[in-house]
Amino acid sequence: MSAPLATRLWLAQRASAAVLALCVAVHLATMITAVRGGLSATEILNRTRGSLGWATFYGLFVLAVSIHVPIGLRTVAAEWLGWRGGRADAACAVFGIALLLLGALAIAAVTR
């Protein structure tokens, strides 16, 4: 991989990590406060359905995950499995796209 591309991937992973730090904190805080009134699917769906705010928040969360994870997986694959090169890069990219699609489906299911 070329030096400029590797550097940009590193930047993307750092930037997505910063977004994730915020998203995870908000997600956990919401879970803890939501449970106080009794946790049920109905209650959650009442809060999230039709909410542009939650759709935007979790959309950002999923986008950050699908950027952050494949870049990290690429390093894990190279260092722990010795799996390097174009095929490993492609597999990690496919995994990232799968995360994006699955995440988008989940968001659509709870916010539409």
């Binding site: 991989m1 070329s2 030096a3 400029p4 590797a6 550097t7 991937l9 590193w10 390093t75 190279a78 390097r84």
Partner: peptide
């Protein structure tokens, strides 16, 4: 030098 030290074998590893 920055090009030589960037990337999978360099500082980002």
């Amino acid at each position: 030098r920055l090009a030589a030290v960037a990337g999978d074998a360099g500082c980002h590893a």
